[in-house]
Nucleic acid binder design. Sequence first.
DNA 1: CTGTTAGCGCGTTCAC
DNA 2: GTGAACGCGCTAACAG
Lengths: 322, 322
Amino acid sequence: MKDVARIAGVAIVTVSRVLNEPDKVAPATREAVLDAMRQVGYLPNLVAGSLASNKSGMVAVVVPTITNSIFADTVQGAADLLEAEGISILLGQTGYDDERERSLIATMLGRRAEGIVVIGCTQAPPARALLAAAHVPVVQTWDLVDDPVDLIVGFSNFGAGRAVAAHLVDRGYRRLAFLGGGDPRSYARGEGFRAALHDRGMAAALEVDLASPAAIEAGRDGLARLRGVAPRIEAAFFSTDVFAAGALLGCVQAGIAVPADLAIAGFGDLELAAQMNLTTVRIRGYDIGRGAATMILARLAGTPLDRRTVDLGFELVVRGTT
Amino acid sequence: MKDVARIAGVAIVTVSRVLNEPDKVAPATREAVLDAMRQVGYLPNLVAGSLASNKSGMVAVVVPTITNSIFADTVQGAADLLEAEGISILLGQTGYDDERERSLIATMLGRRAEGIVVIGCTQAPPARALLAAAHVPVVQTWDLVDDPVDLIVGFSNFGAGRAVAAHLVDRGYRRLAFLGGGDPRSYARGEGFRAALHDRGMAAALEVDLASPAAIEAGRDGLARLRGVAPRIEAAFFSTDVFAAGALLGCVQAGIAVPADLAIAGFGDLELAAQMNLTTVRIRGYDIGRGAATMILARLAGTPLDRRTVDLGFELVVRGTT
DNA sequence: CTGTTAGCGCGTTCAC
DNA sequence: GTGAACGCGCTAACAG
């Protein structure tokens, strides 16, 4: 920058102005400065700018894993809006590990991210404490709770589980099972499923723990295990479409008719769900990301938010497997 | 930091040392400093540290879109290694747009990313010029070329296309088609496909342009279009499994027997390929990311690299659709 | 092992 | 419209 100023024959501050408030500089000098920049191949040091202005121009997005296409949608949604504003994305992957999540959050806060988006509302206490003490907007996503750290964009996992249960019961299925686990949101869907049966005075659902990260194989294995202990089960709700797809595949190979012998429902409405004609719950991952970005941008712009929690809802998509 | 130093009764620089080289500080003073940090709830300002040390602690990863699971793997591979070293990921999505790619690269270089990973080897001239002038390691991925900007981790898309053609010809198929397009790598696979037929003195393949981003629907439509103009086609190679999956689905619905009436091959070996018993080409997206990260880390550590180009290869996976 | 002195490259006051 | 001075929060040399 010093070089640019010297070549253009102006003061350093003028160069800075050409970059940040071009209008306040005479067209002639502006051109001279721009010329000098091209000559030197000048790339503004945004780090120095961040320090001086106390604005990093970065927003952090922390997800369990980007490989899960459902979270990728959220990242994309947030990035599309943020990048358009010249804000860069700091991406963090927790791998479903609490300590890694805490350390990632600490690092990103240290890098002075101007906002932070996290998946889920149930961060472990140390991570939550960091978020609560952060002086930037914090958006929790993918679920709803009564005591958010700051902002929320999500839907009710509990409600989704309940809706699936209601649908299965309406269809006449009685001996039900829930297969899932791993993360808190999957657990919440199981809770809702359970609660719906309890409300109806029905027998509790059988439960099978399936480990994250979601893999097709795990779904198939889970189904096999389930049928080992409860061969007469009538309908199974899997915490993600990936598991359900595996189970469906297992059924085909084992000659189990779906839904006649066994009904199957998933969650997420991934592309493969439509493809396999799978009943599932649609949630709008991309819009969650957009919503989170919108709230952060509003906060940064000083616009007051009309509400701190946005419920994007979910939609039961009934197809051929139930 | 000033406060921490005052409370702990030491100089500012000692606080800095507790953070960066704890061993060089007496255990007693170290504890005093750490105590003071906890009291104040101190979060080191990494931006200031970056400016002073001229090391940002960030690496940029620029992909067309993170929603494509195949790129997500590469991001994850790079992130897993980098985050373990305390390096943060700056994520950029070009949306297959040259100007957006250029501007993203400029921004990330301005943020003083210590390394940059991009997808593909054929960046538009302005973007390439930026990369070439960057004073940090640059890794191009997902293809191979003779004139890399700096480092390469990839495989031969051309070779992959040729291998698929060879396989189809060996199987006895003669009237072939290639369906794909959009990005340069897909195009390179088509080139290889074409070249293989030409080398054998066979008739040129029919070609159908399919738009990115890859969607299941597009594959189905492409197949319909193809059969409209060339009903007697015997085998079709799609530039990605997503297209191929859509086509396969279309065949099922249209009562076209695969591979008897029409053979289908895809690319990528996504989970759904195995699921649908689709012949495809397996590439190792995760390892590409790991490889890129490894090279960058080596450069940063000053370790000389034995080679600047790493060919991870590909593997033809023959399944039931050919 | 600890402290002192200088910046890092910019933005932000003020003057002119 | 332009410039000089100062400081952002921290690290890199040195010196003791």
